Computed example of a mutant assay.
Amino acid sequence: MAEVVAQFLSPAGRLLEKPVSQVRQERLEERAEVWRPTRYRGRRAIATWWRPAGQARHAGCATLGALEAALSLEFDPQVVSFTGWPLRLAWADSAEGYVPDFFARLADGRARLLVCQTSERATGCWEETSMLLKAAGEQADWEVRVHPGTDDTAAAANRQRLARYRHARLADADTARVLHQVFARPRPFTDGVKASALPELATVARALHLVWKRELLIDWSTPFLPTRSLVWSPQEVR
C-alpha cells in the first residue's frame, strides 16, 4: 500500500510533514488549522465555528452539514475533544491533498477522523478520497467515519435544541440529586421540574443539562416537548 503523509502545525505553529504512521502520538486535536475555506461572493457553503464545551479552541465547520457533524461529535460520549481541519493528507508521491473535517480524541486514547459526505463528494473524486482516508486510518491506526449529511430525524432536532445546555457550568450536584428522585418514575419534564420545588428557571436549565449528558433519559426518537415528553432517571433511588 502506498504511503500517506500528513501536514500539520507544531505547537509553535510551524508546518510539519510526516508519514501518518509517525503521527500517532501527535495531539492534533490541540493544533491550529492547516486550512480554512475561501470566502467569496456567491459561495453556497456556510463557514462557521463550533466551540465544544470545556474547550478554548473553536472547531471550524465549512458547511451546515459539518456543523451538524460537530454537534454529533459533541454528543458522542466516547469523544473527549475535537477540532476542525488540523491536518492535510496526501499520497507520498502526490501534490494533491485532502483536509478531513474533524480530528477527535476518544476516551480510550484512540483518534477518529470524521469527514462529511456532501453532494460535491458524491463523484469519482470521492472514491479516490475514500481510498486515501482508508489508507491513512490503517497506517496511523485512526478510526475513520463519514458523516452522511443533513439529518432531519427527531433525534437530530433534539440534539440541536438541547446542545445549548451542554456546558458544564450548568452541572449542580444538589439539583441533580433532587431531580433523580422526582424522575424516579417516568413523568413529563415540566411536571418533574415543578415537583422538585426548586427555582424553576435554574432547574430547567440544569435538568436539560442532565438530559444532554444522558443522566436523565428521554425517548430521543420522538420530538422533545417539555409539557408532554416523559423523562426518567436510570438511577435507583435509595
Rank of each mutant, 00 (worst) to 15 (best):
A90Y: 03
P199M: 05
V193Y: 07
K213H: 03
A95N: 10
Q139R: 04
R57Y: 00
E215T: 07
R110D: 11
P188Q: 02
H209A: 04
L106F: 08
F224W: 06
R27P: 08
A45F: 12
A202L: 07
R159I: 12
Q22L: 12
V182E: 02
A90V: 05
V182D: 00
V80R: 15
R164F: 10
D152P: 00
T203R: 04
R187T: 06
G192Y: 03
T38V: 15
A135E: 13
F183D: 05
M1D: 08
D141A: 11
L16W: 08
F102A: 10
A47W: 11
E30T: 15
F224S: 09
A155W: 07
R238M: 15
L87G: 01
K18E: 14
R214Q: 15
R31Y: 11
T129K: 12
E29P: 01
T83H: 06
Q7W: 01
L15P: 00
P37A: 13
L208S: 00
K194T: 04
A171P: 00
R110K: 08
P188G: 08
W91E: 12
P186A: 08
E200I: 02
A56G: 12
F82W: 07
P226W: 02
A173N: 01
P100L: 05
F8E: 03
A154E: 13
A111T: 10
W85P: 01
V211R: 03
A155H: 06
T38Q: 13
A207W: 06
I218H: 04
S119V: 14
T118M: 13
H209K: 10
F8A: 09
G65T: 15
V144T: 04
E236L: 13
V204H: 02
A92T: 10
Q78D: 15
R112S: 06
A66M: 14
L216N: 07
E33A: 14
A12V: 04
A59R: 04
T203A: 03
L67P: 00
R121S: 13
P100T: 07
P148L: 05
Y165D: 13
R43W: 04
E68D: 15
I218S: 05
V231T: 11
L64M: 15
P148G: 01
L170P: 09
M1I: 09
V5F: 02
S21I: 08
L217V: 07
L16C: 14
D191E: 11
A157S: 09
R88L: 13
R238C: 13
T129P: 00
W35S: 11
S229W: 05
T48R: 10
L113P: 01
S130G: 12
L170Q: 09
R145F: 00
L28Q: 07
L71R: 11
E215P: 00
E127H: 10
Q78N: 14
S130M: 14
R214W: 02
W50E: 06
E128Q: 15
Q139H: 06
P19E: 07
E96S: 07
D93S: 11
E17T: 15
E29W: 15
F75L: 11
G54Q: 03
P226C: 01
D174C: 09
A156K: 02
H58K: 15
V5E: 06
G124R: 03
V23E: 01
S94N: 12
P186M: 05
A205R: 14
W232H: 05
H58N: 08
A56Q: 13
T63N: 11
E215Q: 13
Q117G: 00
V193D: 02
G13C: 07
Q139T: 07
G42N: 04
